Amino acid sequence: MSFLTRTLQALRLPLLCALLWWLPAGSAQAAVSCTATMTALAFGTVELVNGSTASPTTATLNYTCTNDSNSAVEQVRVCFNIGDGNEGLGNFNPRVMENTAGNQLRFQLYQATSGTIWGSNGNAIVPNPFVATMSIPRRTTAGGLGRVTGVATMRGELLPLQGTVPPGTYQDNFAGDHTSITLTRSTSAMPTTCDTIQPGKFGFMVTATVAKSCLVTADPLNFGTVNGLPGAADTDQASTISVTCTTPTAYTVALTPSNNSTTGAGTMTPTGGVPGNTDTVPYRLYRNAARSNVWGNVTGTNTVAGTGNGAAQALTVYGRVLGASTNVRPDSYRDVVTVSVTY
């Protein structure tokens, strides 16, 4: 038993000596490190059916770089790299958010107010990370690390012409390996590359909520010149209402003349061309060319329904001046019809 004990002790001695040989005898080699955080980029609630897009929004990068050398000022070039995001895998220009159904909303990230896309080293599609250069002072005699802090702005923009994107909540998560920090340091000239990968990340979220929305426009319904004598024939004309709603938003369109008729039966009044004229011209609005189905404002009874697809949908309004009931003075007559879209 004593022999085995001596043998084990003898084996330990060379290992102990080797460990002691590797302990540093003086100050450690200079090391520079950088950390960063990025705030969330939130577009909020956006309406896209009019073909435009939301206003640009911004996020803020805060970074800190330290130097633990007590003898040298470090010249440092730091690159803050951004990739494609968890939901936008493989999409860099543009980047994309997704909702839970897999629908995509396109966006892009830029550096401050410039047109430079915020990318990453080695990415052929978006190769430009945000770069910061700095001189980091040496460590103080009291042991405090040399330190430089900074702030940078990231700008996000939604791409235009995304009216077909369905309503919902969209996101792209840049946590994990979708961001990185690389740097190169020198005690002489400022480096021109960023080669050393830092352990820290600066993950952030990009979010937007696409709202249900509709846009409506209407062309005038012009009957032209009509016969104002009793027993005259009816005068028919048509017009177009264009409704653009998000996909797949159900909607109804109601028409209400200025007299608040619920059945599309209005009257045009003189525009003032003939002093003292109080005559009126009756008309009615219809949903079909045969003018058998009136177009009013009783939902489900005499309104028109549709489902949005993100594009303009044309609806025809069929109008008729009732000639048999006319007996009016020559003049110009006019009425205003309110178009209401419920969705």
Rank of each mutant, 00 (worst) to 15 (best):
P160C: 03
F174W: 09
N173F: 10
L161R: 12
R106K: 04
D172G: 09
L109S: 06
G203I: 11
E157C: 03
G90V: 00
A132H: 07
P160A: 04
G144L: 13
A211T: 02
I181P: 04
G203R: 12
K201L: 09
T153P: 06
S180Q: 01
C194F: 02
G143W: 08
N121A: 10
N173R: 13
G203Q: 11
D172S: 14
V126M: 02
T192C: 08
K212P: 12
M190C: 09
D177G: 12
Q104Y: 00
S180V: 02
S186R: 08
T116P: 05
H178M: 09
I125T: 15
G115I: 11
G144M: 10
T187E: 06
A142C: 06
A208D: 09
F174K: 06
T187Y: 11
N86V: 13
F202A: 07
N123H: 07
I181M: 05
G150N: 07
A211M: 06
T182V: 08
Y170E: 05
T193Q: 05
F174M: 13
R155P: 03
A101S: 15
T187F: 13
K212Y: 04
V210D: 08
P160W: 01
D177A: 14
H178K: 14
L183D: 13
V131K: 08
P137K: 05
F92Y: 15
G143M: 09
E87N: 07
A208I: 05
V165E: 02
T133N: 15
T192Y: 08
M97D: 07
F92T: 05
P94E: 06
E87K: 01
F204S: 07
E157P: 01
P137L: 07
W118H: 10
N99Q: 09
I125D: 11
V148A: 02
N123Y: 08
N91R: 03
I197H: 08
D195K: 11
Q171V: 00
R185D: 10
T184N: 08
G122F: 02
A208S: 14
T116Y: 05
G144R: 10
D195A: 15
E157S: 11
G88I: 00
A189Q: 11
T141G: 05
S135G: 14
Q111S: 03
P160K: 04
M134C: 05
P167M: 08
M134L: 15
S114R: 09
T164K: 10
T169P: 00
F92G: 00
Q108P: 00
V126A: 03
T192S: 15
T141S: 14
G122R: 01
P199D: 04
M154G: 13
V96Y: 03
Y110N: 01
T133V: 14
L159A: 09
T113W: 00
M190P: 06
I136V: 14
L109W: 02
T207R: 15
R95K: 14
Q162I: 05
G203H: 12
G176S: 14
T187I: 13
G122T: 02
R138C: 00
F130D: 14
G115P: 04
G90I: 01
T113S: 11
T164Y: 03
P127L: 12
Y110V: 00
V96E: 05
N99M: 07
A175V: 11
I197Q: 13
V126R: 01
N86L: 14
P129W: 13
T192E: 09
G88S: 04
